[in-house]
Write a protein that binds this DNA or RNA. Structure first.
Lengths: 209, 209
DNA sequence: CCTACCGATCGGTAGG
DNA sequence: CCTACCGATCGGTAGG
């Protein structure tokens, strides 16, 4: 009786749907403001059913973060495959990261601020996923430093870079005048100090800083 | 009977205490996770009493943001008073901003993400306060562009800069090896492309990106 | 600014 | 995965 088994509720689709809906809602409204009922509604379940797939609301967030980061990591690796020039590779990393952040379905990197609600064990799992995600970045920054195009590849530089990129979630409008390619170029130019690059002007967004 | 009047509960101290406590708790735990009872407890009031001073929890957040930003703005103006060299002025703006953000009592700039919970009218008030705060920055960036030290002073550059600085709240540890002065120098060096500046290395923080 | 309280909501569970 | 439900909490208010 394969049919009964197929309807038994252990299909990975429903689980994945829950994760996608949860990630989207957590980004939109924040972890605390999103109710487990919101998440259930979004996938057409009843209020108690998400707890059949996940032990708690916290586990939903933790899993969305870890799996989202790993998916983003896979996308990074695919995008830079075979690129040997470190400057070109940085450009691709930045562009791919911004794509994931600003137009993709996976908003994991911008849920960082929501992990406040999680316990130490969850923090450790998420930190490990972040370490994986940062590996190609650190490699590329190191190469840029060795070739003299970057003054320093120390931790603060990488962290300032991520802050710069992730902060764009607060002000970037996909329907505005600035394209993702232009934004990526601006960020790379700022990091590498390319004083020749002119950044195109845009209208001032509503809440700028 | 001046005594009765002094005890009548309209002293601005209590109001200011509530705002300080609210801002601190909103930063620590987030707007939604902070209860009005938490705030009342923090200043030794009963659960219903904050509503004598503020109509709602939202108004508490809005007021903390606007008054915090204006206090930070006043601090910026005092710090750059009389500084004519734009590069030096930028350094002071960055250092003062980081001080406000990372060690001061006023964490207003980092409550940006919490304003999700507010309505359009509150957003407009906060946006106006941000515009005031950004004025000296834009002036300084424009001067740097005219003197050729900055490729562009367009909006995206300013926004990337703020993202870079504000993101440090997620990873900077005041008790770590990196001082605020060093962090400020790193950020300015990154923005101005000073390839001669070496950034000191630090241990990798727990949750880096 | 306190006391006393309410209506609504929320995360999570038992049992099927 | 649904039904039915609970215990706890929370923002806010009335009346003083």
């Amino acid at each position: 009786m394969p049919r009964r088994k197929a309807e038994a509720g252990l299909e990975p689709n429903r689980r994945a749907e829950l994760l996608r809906a949860a990630a989207r809602l957590f980004v939109e409204k924040g972890f605390d403001a999103t109710t487990t009922r919101d998440i259930a509604d979004a996938v057409g379940m009843r209020s108690g059913s998400p707890f059949y797939h996940f032990r708690s609301k916290q586990e939903l967030l933790k899993t969305a973060m870890v799996e989202g980061l790993d998916a983003g990591y896979a996308r990074l690796l695919a995008a830079i495959d075979g690129i040997t020039d470190p400057e070109q590779r940085l450009r691709i990393l930045v562009r791919t990261h911004l794509g994931t952040l600003l137009e993709g379905e996976c908003h994991a990197p911008m849920l960082l601020g929501e992990t406040r609600a999680l316990d130490a064990a969850a923090h450790a799992e998420i930190a490990a996923a972040f370490d994986r995600y940062q590996m190609p970045w650190q490699t590329t920054l190191d190469e840029l430093q060795h070739s003299g195009k970057l003054a320093s590849a120390a931790a603060p530089v990488r962290l300032l870079l991520f802050g710069m990129l992730n902060g764009s979630k607060h002000w970037y409008r996909p329907d505005g005048k600035l394209s993702l390619d232009e934004l990526a170029d601006s960020a790379v130019a700022l990091l590498l100090g390319e004083s020749r690059t002119m950044v195109p002007a845009t209208g001032t967004p509503k809440v700028p800083c």
